[in-house]
């Protein structure tokens, strides 16, 4: 890693930009400690009541549990689907590989709102609206392209000669994969898992079409809550979410190296 100090001009340019990007996020922190019954800045008094409300109010915990479960299932399925796909794309060197790859990453290029509407139209007759499987399927559309991209990059960098060496030493293709390929792409797997989870956990637009009173996700619940109540509870939940996201990113950075896995 290059340890050179960036030039002063760059710092002067970056600091306001960073402040501009982070200011709206940071403002949720003081609001979350507000004693007021409504969203206002600056708060007229300080308290932890909204954190208490977040942990004791049944609704928040319910949608949080849904979002976590959804994120975990979507992440696991994304990796299970994207890993063999990436293997095929990287290793088989078919002539139409780039066409397949474009097809699989196309959902990223579509406006999420259009995607959400389309999924709504398809899912309605199938009875998948406001169901867990429906949400999983919809989120997979968005997470798979990320997983595929990251895993393809990781696999392209995996040492082919070491895999061949393992084969000459008597390892069947499956054992070569477990013993040599998988350890080599572990950073990529960690990055893909973290990104899939965060993308799913954070998804609002498509989920808006697929959630209902029976089943909702945390971001969708927050969206509706602000519309209806506008109390600082959402600020407290936001701060908790920022903390959770930071923890995930930190874990990836410590175990796999953030720049190594994302920037390639």
């Amino acid at each position: 890693m290059d340890e050179r100090k960036p030039p002063l001009g760059l710092i002067l340019l970056a600091l306001p930009l960073l402040a501009f990007l982070l200011a709206p996020v940071l403002i949720t922190i003081p609001i979350s400690f507000s004693a007021d019954p409504y969203l206002s800045f600056p708060p007229s008094g300080w308290s932890l009541r909204w954190y208490r409300a977040a942990f004791t109010g049944g609704a928040v915990l319910d949608v949080f549990a849904t979002s976590v479960a959804l994120g975990l299932v979507v992440t696991a399925l994304s990796l299970l689907i994207a890993l063999p796909a990436a293997m095929a794309l990287v290793r088989l060197r078919w002539g139409w590989v780039s066409a397949i790859e474009s097809f699989l990453t196309a959902p990223l290029l579509l406006p999420a709102i259009v995607l959400g509407l389309a999924i709504l139209i398809v899912f309605a007759p199938l009875g998948l609206l406001a169901t867990f499987p429906g949400l999983v399927a919809a989120h997979l559309v968005v997470t798979l392209p990320y997983a595929l991209r990251i895993l393809s990059t990781a696999l392209a960098g995996a040492p082919l000669a070491a895999e061949e060496a393992a084969a000459t030493l008597g390892a069947s293709p499956l054992r070569v994969f477990w013993r040599v390929t998988l350890p080599a792409i572990r950073p990529g797997l960690a990055a893909a898992a973290a990104l899939c989870f965060l993308v799913s956990f954070d998804e609002v637009v498509i989920s808006l079409f697929l959630t209902g009173p029976r089943l909702s996700t945390l971001p969708v619940w927050m969206f509706h809550h602000v519309e209806n109540e506008a109390d600082p509870l959402v600020a407290a939940v936001s701060v908790l979410l920022i903390a959770l996201t930071l923890v995930i990113v930190l874990v990836v950075d410590r175990t796999a190296g953030l720049s190594r896995t994302f920037v390639k």
């Binding site: 070491a162 061949e164 060496a165 000459t168 070569v176 040599v180 350890p183």
Partner: peptide
């Protein structure tokens, strides 16, 4: 993997 041959690579190819 069933040929029973040892191969030494130019790039070493260690794990």
């Amino acid at each position: 993997h069933r040929r029973d041959m040892g191969l030494v690579f130019q790039s070493y190819a260690l794990f």
